[in-house]
């Protein structure tokens, strides 16, 4: 599939009917989603034939794009049941088999507590579990909803943490690292690049800034004073192949 075809297909994906500020629901623009997926697919081989998870999938534009590019399995996670309804309708419309799980990504990956041990300690704890009982919980006792390292690629357009939820973007990214065997793809404000690189290294992954984008965030909410705002955003890839695994 050509890039322009992917982009035009993704333009038909329905977006949030009534976006929720607190969840930072901004739809991923079709041209951004298409560029992002095309790069993952063509330059890195992270889509075709892969098991792909979408954290905070919203209306599932990224999952649908991945499915159109030939992913073998898709699962999307989101906390908002209204978004998931639209996502399921979108997936049906595109005849894509995508499973949706209604959950809180932060809590479901055992990352809810502020005082959590570093990832390598959690992973070490996981690796001591015998295979008949899959990693039941992180070492701080917080149970995990999804078995770690069960997917190949994790994609996300996470909340940026600008609405009294600072740091949530990093938590999403961390959750991605827990789940992905190969790579995590995400979008982050360019201003946070250094911080992300440092965290990525702590998690045993290598960060690559694959592209610099401009996000045109249209005025969707009452607190938006201008028609639209341009935000500098990095498309990043975390190589997880050397991250500690079970």
């Amino acid at each position: 599939m050509k890039l322009k075809h992917l982009e035009s297909a993704l333009q038909d994906v329905e977006a949030f009917a009534s976006p929720k500020v607190k969840l930072e629901q901004y739809p991923t623009q079709p041209h951004v989603a298409a560029q992002m997926l095309y790069t993952m697919h063509n330059s890195f081989g992270d889509i075709e034939g892969k098991a792909v998870g979408d954290l905070g999938c919203g209306c599932a534009v990224l999952s649908i794009g991945a499915a159109l590019l030939g992913s073998a399995y898709n699962v999307g996670f989101d906390i908002d049941t209204d978004a998931l309804k639209i996502a399921a309708a979108n997936a049906a419309e595109f005849e894509c088999d995508i499973d949706f799980v209604h959950c809180d990504v932060v809590e479901a990956l055992g990352l809810a507590a502020n005082a959590q041990p570093p990832l390598h300690i959690q992973m070490a704890a996981l690796s001591t579990n015998d295979s008949s009982s899959p990693a039941a919980s992180s070492s701080n006792g917080l149970p995990l909803l999804v078995r770690p390292k069960s997917l190949d690629t994790v994609i996300m357009n996470p909340p940026f943490g600008t609405k009294n939820n600072a740091g949530i973007d990093m938590t999403f990214l961390h959750a991605g690292v827990l789940l992905a065997r190969t790579a995590v793809w995400s979008l982050h404000k360019t201003s946070t690049r250094k911080h992300i690189a440092k965290k990525a290294a702590e998690w045993g992954t290598t960060m690559e800034v694959v592209a610099e984008l401009r996000f045109d965030i249209p005025a969707m909410y009452k607190f938006h004073k201008e028609k639209s705002v341009d935000v500098a955003v990095d498309l990043i890839r975390l190589d997880c192949t050397r991250a500690p695994s079970r």
């Binding site: 399995y73 699962v75 499973d99 799980v101 009982s133 039941a136 917080l142 149970p143 995990l144 078995r147």
Partner: peptide, 21 residues
């Protein structure tokens, strides 16, 4: 929910960390 997804999920209620799968 396909059975592949079911195979990835386990109970994550606080304190439920054995026999949760």
């Amino acid at each position: 929910m396909r059975l592949l997804t079911h195979n990835l999920l386990q109970c994550h209620v606080k304190g439920c960390s054995t026999n949760n799968y």
